[in-house]
């Protein structure tokens, strides 16, 4: 067997290991699915009436806000899940089984690939649940199937990128406790962008940051694809950000794992 087939085989073994672990320890998955749902309900039913009126243009109110906030909540869900991934990786690294893997003739990156694919599947399931609930409470996208696919593709790309970042952060953390803190800034990024309110309503410095940070173009693209708002060059910038984060994090994670 060639090196590549072996790597693919080891990776699929590690993915199966990870999925089995996730099934065996479902409370983490449940928490990752439930937390964004609660945030969605909070933002729509508690803040939505007022925030929706401030969106400008259109009828405003709660109905307008559901449509506006869903992309932000989706990205926030991914960021929350990244915390879980970082903790899981850091915990896994403290286990003797990782040392065992290192003394075996297997593709080393397969251990990390297992974590990434497992987490991505977990997060996409979470996003599907979130979109389902959003649709039930008044989310009304006007996307064609192709636009849906494009949005799903971009979200998946983002999830892959942020998961590799989480894996790298988890590997860098000396303890699982430290790993749970490292991705916290990611959770706040949707707030400091166009996730919950349009950026024009912010003071200058904050607006500048909000417009140039990576999550804003991603949210704007998803919003545009699903709801028909203007996308402009956001799609290209979003894809570039995802590619850059994924590639840098992958290399970072791999070299960290090999060094340890």
């Amino acid at each position: 067997m060639s090196t590549l087939t072996l790597a693919a085989r080891d990776s699929s073994t590690m993915v199966r290991r990870q999925l089995r672990r996730l099934l065996r320890y479902p409370s983490m998955t449940v928490q990752l699915v439930v937390t964004p749902v609660i945030l969605l309900l909070l933002f729509v039913y508690v803040f939505g009436g007022t925030l929706g009126d401030g969106l400008g243009g259109g009828p405003g109110g709660r109905d307008a806000y559901v449509n506006y906030v869903v992309p932000g909540i989706l990205l926030m869900a991914a960021a929350t899940a990244a915390t879980g991934t970082a903790v899981m990786v850091a915990t896994d690294m403290t286990e003797g089984i990782i040392a065992r893997f290192r003394t075996m003739r297997i593709s080393r990156a397969s251990v990390l690939t297992g974590h990434v694919v497992g987490s991505v599947i977990q997060q996409l399931l979470g996003m599907a649940v979130l979109i389902g609930i959003a649709l039930a409470i008044g989310f009304r996208p006007n996307a064609t199937p192709v636009e849906w696919l494009a949005a799903a593709g971009l979200l998946t790309f983002f999830v892959v990128a942020i998961t590799w970042l989480a894996v790298a952060l988890g590997l860098k953390s000396p303890t699982p406790e430290a790993a749970s803190n490292a991705p916290i800034p990611l959770v706040f990024l949707p707030f400091l962008g166009s996730g919950f309110v349009p950026t024009d309503s912010m003071p200058t410095v904050l607006r500048w940051f909000a417009e140039y940070q990576p999550l804003t173009p991603i949210m704007e693209t998803v919003r545009g694809l699903l709801l028909g708002t203007p996308i402009g060059n956001s799609a290209a910038i979003a894809t570039a950000w995802c590619a850059a984060i994924a590639a840098a994090s992958y290399l970072w994670a791999k070299s960290t794992f090999n060094k340890a």
């Binding site: 073994t13 290991r17 089995r20 672990r21 065996r24 003797g96 893997f101």
Partner: peptide, 28 residues
Amino acid sequence: IGVTGQYSAVDKLLTGEENLLLMADLKH
């Protein structure tokens, strides 16, 4: 080689049989 270290190198979330099958898969 095979290594049994000082700290147990088993996956605690998997069953005994699953642990052995995991090794079999990794040994191809």
